[in-house]
């Protein structure tokens, strides 16, 4: 069985019964794409909202290019572009913000970028667990698309 751990600025796609995990997302955003018919899933641990020229070639680092890359990789595994749904988790603000500097709200920017890019592509976001002040560990079960989310004090699934 495919059982894969991704780190910051990485992505992975897998078929059922694969499991994709990522530990300790803070302000980064976890973007989960899933085709419930082909049972093909993908997870990206993206750090920043938008890729721009001169920002290197790591597509998993940016929300927009991570989504595009996952779509291509999932289609190669048999996913149908019209069947894909999305879930989002992460985008926390880890440290309390005293002066509203832009770094501290990068989590919100990542969430907004994912909303916007998925909206443009017409991919529905069926569930979200975003924002707040806690890190999250994610586990996607590609058998049914369930996303398990742990913080230091809570466990949930969406």
């Amino acid at each position: 069985m495919d059982n894969y751990q991704i780190g910051m600025a990485q992505l992975y796609v897998a078929k059922s019964p694969g499991i994709i995990r990522s530990t300790g997302l803070g302000s980064c955003i976890g973007i989960i794409l899933y085709d419930p018919f082909a049972k093909v899933g993908g997870m990206a641990h993206a750090m920043l909202p938008k890729h721009r020229p001169g920002r290197g070639d790591n597509k998993a680092k940016y929300v927009d290019t991570a989504i595009n890359t996952m779509l291509e990789d999932m289609e190669a595994l048999g996913a149908g572009p019209m069947n894909i749904i999305a879930k989002l988790a992460g985008g926390a603000q880890m440290f309390p913000d005293s002066d509203k500097d832009s770094l501290m709200i990068i989590g919100e920017k990542n969430i907004a970028a994912a909303d916007e890019h998925l909206g443009t592509l017409g991919i529905p976001i069926v569930a979200k667990d975003v924002g707040g002040h806690s890190g999250r560990t994610l586990e996607l079960d590609c058998r049914d698309g369930t996303l398990y989310i742990k913080t230091v004090t809570t466990e949930t699934k969406i």
Binding site: G24, G26, F95, S134, V152
Partner: peptide, 13 residues
């Protein structure tokens, strides 16, 4: 600024 949380989540900042 203080947080008590997962190492990876805080290192991401």
């Amino acid at each position: 600024r203080l947080a008590v949380d997962m190492a990876e989540a805080m290192l991401s900042v």
